[in-house]
Design a protein around this nucleic acid. Structure first.
Length: 984
RNA sequence: GGGCUCGUAGCUUAGCCUGGUUGGAGCGCUCGGCUGAUAACCGAGAGGUCUGGAGUUCAAAUCUCCGCGGGCCCA
C-alpha cells in the first residue's frame, strides 16, 4: 500500500489556495494555532486600524502580509499572539464621502440636513467596503480575529478615549488656544493637510512693499507681502536676528525719507539710495512703529514692534516680514512665544467684520485692491508688483484657501518633549535611521497637538463649559456623564445627542454645555492600546497586552499613528506603547511612480490574486528588497516568482511523492541515523540547518528579504538543482536498498522542515505539502503546519567542512565543464580521467566527494597531483582558483567512443519514452538498425542499456508490423545513422 | 521651499555601515551543451561613464559636499 498520494505535476495554485482556505475554515486552524499557545510567553501586536470606506490597495495588502508573516512566525515559536482586528471609523474623509453623495459642501448645509441623519450616513458609509477588506484579508492569508474587532465609533471605545482625555485634562495638559489652519471660506471648513496638498495651483498675486512708519520722522521699515488683506491683522514686523540690515536714504515724491531693509535685498529699491547706517537684526528688536490701520481691536498683548525670528529669509522680499497671527502659522507661533497680542478682523465666511468699517462684509481676496489703493493714497505704498507662486485652493469648490486662526483645543505636547524623547529611546526602529532621523527630529521639535475639529462625525470632545462663569468640566466615563446630566442621556455618545446633555455648574449653578467640537481621529487610533480593551473599565486584557511588542505600518505613519500612539501613551502612562516598530515602504507602479487614483495607475490586487495567487504575491513582496524600501509592483515579477520559486518547490515535493508512491516508501518505518547516511545526504541536512540559523537571524532583524532570498536560493540551487538532481538515480533503483532509503528519508526530512521554515512566508503551498506529506501519512501528528513549532537549527548536523567541500567540488565541476567546452567534447562522451592539482587540505576535502565529481564530469577516474605534475599534450588545463588547477584527459580510445555512443543511444531512447508519455515503470522492447560499430557497442553494453531504459529486450532489425504500440525514429549521432524502435 | 530616504547592466537586484583582488547574481539576449521531477539546468559571450559633478585619500560604487530624478513627510 502506498503511503503517499500521487500528485499533479502542474498545480493550480489559486485553486489550491482556495482549498486551503476552506480547510482552515472548517478546522478552525487559526483559532487553534493561537489558543494552543495560551500560557506561553506573550507576543503583543496592535493592528493599526484601516478605514473601510475605500477599497484596499496594494500597499494595504503589503502591510497585511508583513503583519501576518511576523505573527505566524512568533506563534510557531511558541508565543501566545492574540490578534484583534480594528477599524478606524471617524474623521473628515468619511464626512467628505457622505457630503459627496448628498451633493452638499458646507457645514451649514449639513446642519440643515440634520446632524443626526448626517452622522447616521457616516456610520453606514464606514463599512461600505468592509466585505472587500475582509475578503482581501482572508484571501492573502492574514490571520487576524475579524469577528470581534475594535471599532473606534463604539461607545465603549469612546468611553476609553474620554477617560484618557480626562486624565490629560486633570494634568492640566488640555487647553484652549488658537490654531492657524487652512480654511475654505466658501465651504466653511478646515481642510486636512492631505486635502490641501491636492489643491496647489500656480497663480499670480499682487505683491506689495509697504512702509511702516517708525516713531522718528520720515523713517520707515520696508516690508513685503503677497496677501495685502492680512495687513489688517498686523501685529508685528519680524527680522532675522543675525542678518545685516541697513538704513538707506531715498528720494520720495516730494522729500527724502529713510527706509530700513536687509542689506542683501537692496536691489528691490527702485530709486537711487545712500546707505546711512547698518545694523544686525537683533539691533532692531523692540523698535516700535505706528499702526498701519487703526481698526481691529488687539487683545492679549503688545503690538506694533519689531521682533526677531529665525524663519525670516532673504530670498525674496525685504528681510522684514509682516506678522499677522490670525493668518499664518509661523506668525501665530511667533506672537504666542513673544507674548504679543492677537486680532481677528475676519469672520468665518472670509469677510471683514464690522471692526473694519471701510471693508465690512467684503471677501478678503476682493479687498486686496482697495487696501492697496488706501496705502497708496496715504503714501506708504513703496511699490507694487505681480508675484507668481503656488497657492492652495479648495479641492472641492476651487476657492482660494485662507490660513486662518480658529479656536482650538490643544494637548500640551511641547511640555512633554523630554518624556517623548526618553520614551522613544525604549523603541527599536526598523529601519534604525528613523529613530533619531525623521521621527527623532519630529519629536525634538514637537508642537502642541491641535486636538479639536469643528466637525460632526467623530468622538465628541468631552468638555463642558459653564455659560455663566466659564468653568470647565471634563467627563471621564458614561457613569459620570449620567450622574452629572440634568437631562436624559442617549445610548449613543455621538453628536447630536451628546450636544443636548447639560450639567449644572458646581461653582455658580449656571448651565454647562459641551463644546461643539469633535476630536482628531488620529487620537482615536492612537488610543488603541487601551481603548480596544475598554480600559480602565475592564482591566485584564489591557494589562496583559501593554506595551505591544510589535507594530508595523507604512512610512507615512511616522507622524501619524506611530506618533499618536507614543504621544498618548506618554501623556497618560509615560512609557512607550510599543517596543519594536517596522516601517514599510510604499508600492509604486511599474514605472516607479506612486499609485494614486488620480493617475489611474492603481493595480487591482484581486486580479493578481485570481491569476497568480497569494503565495506568489507574498513571496514577491518578501523577496523584492528591504521592506523599508519602496517596491515596484509588476505582474511580470509576481509571475516569475511563481514560476521560479513556487514551481521549483513544488517539483521537489512532486519528485519525492512520485517515487515514494512507486516504492511505497513509509517514513515511519525508516529511521537512519545521520552518520550512516552518505555525504550528499549529510550535506543537504547540514545546509538545511545552516539555512535555518540564517533565516531566524534575519527575521529577528526584520531583514525579511534576506531570509526569503536565502530560502529561495536553497530551494533552487541546493535542493533542486544539486541534491535532487545528483540523487535521482538513487531513487530509481527498483529493489529495496539501504542507500535508496537514506535518500528518501533525507529528502522527506528536508521537505518537511522546509515547509515549516517557509510556512509564515507562503502559508498555502506549505500547508498543502504538509497535509500530503505528514498529515495524510502519519497518525498522531499536528493537523496543520501552522500548528507546528518553528524549526531550530540542529548544531550537530551542521558540518561546515562538508559544506566547504561541496562548494569546492562544485567549482571543480564548473572548471571541468569549461575544459570540455574548450576541447569541444560534450559531457555525454565519457573520458578517462581528470587530474586535480591542489593542496593536501583541499585534496582531503574533495576526496570524500570524488564520486560526485566523477559523475558530473563523466570521467572514469579522478587523480590528485601536486604542483610538480606535468600534463601530457592531450590534457586540457583550466584554472579553478589561486592554488587549484584541473587537467582533463581528452584522449578518446575505442572503448570510450563506444561508451559515448551508447550514452547517446540511451539518451535518444529516453527521449522516445518521454514522447510516448510512458509511465516511469513501464517496460519496453527495443529494435535498432545501425552499422557494425553501433552493433558492437550495443552488444557490449546491452545490460546497461536495458537497465537504463527499462527494456526487456534489445534486438537488431526493423519491427515487422507497425501501429500504435510501435514508435520508430531515425537518428543521426555524430556521423552515424541509427534507426530506433520502441515496442510497448 | 525644508527634512528624511532611494537611484548599480534593457529589467529585478548583491556589494555601501567597517574605502583596497578584474563590481557579483537572476530574468531577457547570442552561441554551445545537458535533460525521464522541473515552463528546469550547465558552460561561454555581449551588455556597467556604479544618477551627474566636485572634494577627501596612495586608493571611492563605498566617505563628504553640491546638483538631477523617484518616494515620503512637512511647508
Amino acid at each position: 500500500m502506498a503511503y503517499f498520494r500521487s500528485e499533479t505535476q502542474r498545480p493550480d495554485f489559486v485553486k489550491l489556495e482556495e482549498e486551503i482556505l476552506e480547510l482552515w475554515d472548517s478546522e478552525d486552524t487559526f483559532e487553534r494555532s493561537v489558543n494552543q499557545r495560551k500560557g506561553g510567553k506573550k507576543f503583543v501586536f496592535i493592528e493599526g486600524p484601516p478605514t473601510a470606506n475605500g477599497l484596499p490597495h496594494p500597499g494595504h495588502i503589503l502591510t497585511r502580509v508583513v503583519k501576518d508573516l511576523v505573527l505566524r512566525y512568533r506563534t510557531m515559536q511558541g508565543y501566545y499572539v492574540e490578534r484583534k482586528a480594528g477599524w478606524d471609523t471617524h474623521g473628515l474623509p468619511v464626512e467628505i464621502e457622505v457630503e459627496k453623495n448628498l451633493r452638499i459642501n458646507t457645514k451649514g448645509e449639513i446642519e440643515n440636513y440634520g446632524i443626526e441623519k448626517f452622522n447616521k450616513k457616516c456610520k453606514d458609509s464606514v463599512f461600505r467596503y468592509e466585505k472587500e477588506w475582509v475578503n482581501a484579508t482572508k484571501r492573502v492569508g492574514f490571520w487576524i480575529d475579524m469577528d470581534s474587532p475594535y471599532i473606534t465609533f463604539d461607545n465603549k471605545y469612546i468611553e476609553s478615549v474620554w477617560w484618557s482625555l480626562k486624565e490629560i485634562w486633570k494634568k492640566g495638559l488640555l487647553y484652549k488656544g488658537h490654531k492657524v489652519v487652512p480654511y475654505c471660506p466658501r465651504c466653511e471648513t478646515t481642510l486636512s493637510s492631505h486635502e490641501v496638498a491636492q489643491g496647489y495651483r500656480d497663480v499670480e498675486d499682487p505683491s506689495i512693499y509697504v512702509k511702516f512708519k517708525l516713531k522718528q520722522p520720515d523713517t520707515y521699515l520696508l516690508a513685503w507681502t503677497t496677501t495685502p488683506w492680512t495687513l489688517l491683522g498686523n501685529i508685528a514686523l519680524a527680522v532675522h536676528p543675525e542678518n545685516r540690515y541697513v538704513k538707506v536714504r531715498v528720494k520720495a515724491r516730494t522729500k527724502e525719507e529713510d527706509l530700513i531693509l536687509a542689506e542683501s535685498r537692496l536691489d528691490v529699491l527702485e530709486s537711487e539710495y545712500e546707505i546711512i547706517e547698518g545694523y544686525t537684526g537683533s539691533d532692531l528688536a523692540d523698535l516700535e512703529y505706528e499702526r498701519l490701520f487703526d481698526f481691529a481691536t488687539i487683545e492679549g498683548g503688545d503690538s506694533q514692534k519689531v521682533v526677531t525670528a529665525d524663519f525670516v529669509t532673504l530670498e525674496e522680499g525685504t528681510g522684514v516680514v509682516h506678522i499677522a497671527p490670525a493668518f499664518g502659522e509661523d506668525d501665530y507661533g511667533l506672537c504666542r512665544d513673544k507674548k504679543l497680542g492677537f486680532s481677528q478682523p475676519v469672520n468665518a465666511e472670509g469677510r471683514f467684520t464690522s471692526e473694519v468699517p471701510p471693508l465690512e462684509g467684503m471677501f478678503v481676496k476682493d479687498a486686496d485692491r482697495p487696501i492697496i489703493e488706501m496705502l497708496d493714497q496715504r503714501g506708504i505704498l513703496y511699490k507694487e508688483e505681480r508675484y507668481s507662486h503656488s497657492y492652495p485652493f479648495c479641492w472641492r469648490c476651487g476657492s482660494p484657501l485662507l490660513y486662518y486662526a480658529r479656536e482650538s483645543w490643544f494637548i500640551a505636547m511641547k511640555s512633554l518633549r523630554d518624556n517623548l524623547i526618553a520614551n522613544n529611546e525604549k523603541i527599536n526602529w526598523y529601519p534604525a535611521y528613523l529613530k533619531h532621523g525623521r521621527f527623532g527630529n519630529f519629536i525634538d521639535n514637537i508642537e502642541d497637538w491641535a486636538l479639536s475639529r469643528e466637525r460632526f462625525w467623530g468622538t465628541p470632545l468631552n468638555i463642558w463649559i459653564c455659560a455663566n462663569c466659564g468653568k470647565e468640566f471634563c467627563v471621564g466615563s458614561v457613569k459620570e456623564l449620567k450622574a452629572r446630566a440634568k437631562n436624559s442621556v442617549s445610548s449613543d455618545l455621538h453628536r447630536p445627542y451628546i450636544d443636548d446633555v447639560v450639567f449644572e455648574c458646581d461653582d455658580c449653578g449656571g448651565e454647562m454645555r459641551r463644546v461643539d467640537d469633535v476630536i482628531d481621529c488620529w487620537y482615536d487610533s492612537g488610543a488603541a492600546p487601551f481603548a480596544q480593551w475598554h480600559y480602565p473599565f475592564e482591566k485584564d486584557a489591557f494589562e496583559r497586552n501593554f506595551p505591544a511588542d510589535f507594530i508595523t505600518e507604512a512610512i507615512d505613519q511616522t507622524r501619524g499613528w506611530f506618533y499618536s500612539l507614543l504621544a498618548i501613551s506618554t501623556t497618560i502612562f509615560d512609557t512607550a506603547p510599543y517596543l519594536n516598530v517596522l516601517s514599510l515602504g510604499h508600492i509604486l507602479d511599474e514605472k516607479g511612480v506612486k499609485m494614486s487614483k488620480s493617475k489611474g495607475n492603481v493595480v487591482d490586487i484581486t486580479s493578481t490574486l485570481d491569476k497568480e495567487g497569494a503565495d506568489a504575491l507574498r513571496w514577491y513582496f518578501f523577496t523584492a528588497g528591504p521592506l523599508s524600501d519602496d517596491v515596484r509592483f509588476t505582474e511580470k515579477g509576481i509571475l516569475e516568482k511563481q514560476k521560479k520559486f513556487l514551481n521549483t518547490l513544488w517539483n521537489s515535493y512532486f519528485f519525492f511523492v512520485t517515487y515514494a508512491v512507486i516504492d511505497e516508501f513509509n517514513p515511519n518505518e525508516k529511521k537512519i541515523p545521520m552518520e550512516k547516511r552518505n555525504a550528499m545526504d549529510r550535506w543537504i541536512i547540514s545546509r538545511l540547518n545552516t539555512l535555518t540559523k540564517e533565516v531566524i537571524d534575519s527575521i529577528e532583524r526584520f531583514e525579511i528579504h534576506v531570509a526569503a532570498r536565502k530560502m529561495e536560493e536553497f530551494v533552487i540551487n541546493d535542493l533542486s538543482n544539486w541534491y535532487i538532481r545528483r540523487s535521482r538515480r538513487r531513487f530509481w533503483i527498483v529493489e529495496a536498498d539501504f542507500d535508496k532509503d537514506s535518500a528518501y528519508i533525507t529528502l522527506f526530512e528536508v521537505l518537511v522542515s522546509l515547509c515549516k521554515l517557509l510556512a509564515p512566508f507562503v502559508p498555502f503551498v506549505t500547508e498543502h505539502i504538509y497535509q500530503k506529506l505528514v498529515r495524510g501519512v502519519s497518525d498522531d501528528v499536528l493537523e496543520s503546519v501552522h500548528l507546528c513549532d518553528y524549526p531550530s537549527p540542529e548544531e550537530s548536523f551542521i558540518d561546515t567542512e562538508l559544506e566547504d567541500s561541496m562548494a569546492l567540488t562544485s567549482k571543480l565541476v564548473e572548471a571541468g565543464r569549461r575544459a570540455r567546452a574548450d576541447a569541444g567534447i560534450k559531457i555525454r562522451q565519457p573520458l578517462k580521467e581528470v587530474v586535480v592539482v591542489c593542496s593536501d587540505k583541499k585534496r582531503k576535502n574533495v576526496e570524500r566527494l570524488v564520486g560526485v565529481l566523477k559523475d558530473e564530469l563523466n570521467v572514469n577516474e579522478v587523480r590528485f597531483e601536486d604542483d610538480a605534475f606535468v600534463a601530457a599534450d592531450a590534457y586540457k588545463q583550466v584554472e579553478v582558483d589561486d592554488d587549484t588547477a584541473l587537467f582533463l584527459d581528452t584522449y578518446l580510445d575505442k572503448g570510450l567512443i563506444e561508451e559515448g555512443l551508447v550514452r547517446d543511444l540511451v539518451r535518444r531512447l529516453q527521449g522516445m519514452r518521454k514522447d510516448l508519455d510512458l509511465e516511469y515503470t513501464a517496460k519496453i522492447r527495443i529494435m535498432y538498425e545501425g552499422d557494425a560499430e553501433v552493433k558492437e557497442a550495443i552488444d557490449r553494453f546491452s545490460d546497461y542499456i536495458r537497465t537504463e531504459t527499462l527494456a526487456e529486450s534489445i534486438e537488431e532489425g526493423k519491427p515487422s508490423e507497425s501501429g500504435d504500440k510501435i514508435y520508430e525514429k531515425d537518428w543521426k549521432i555524430g556521423k552515424k545513422e541509427v534507426h530506433l524502435a520502441i515496442k510497448q
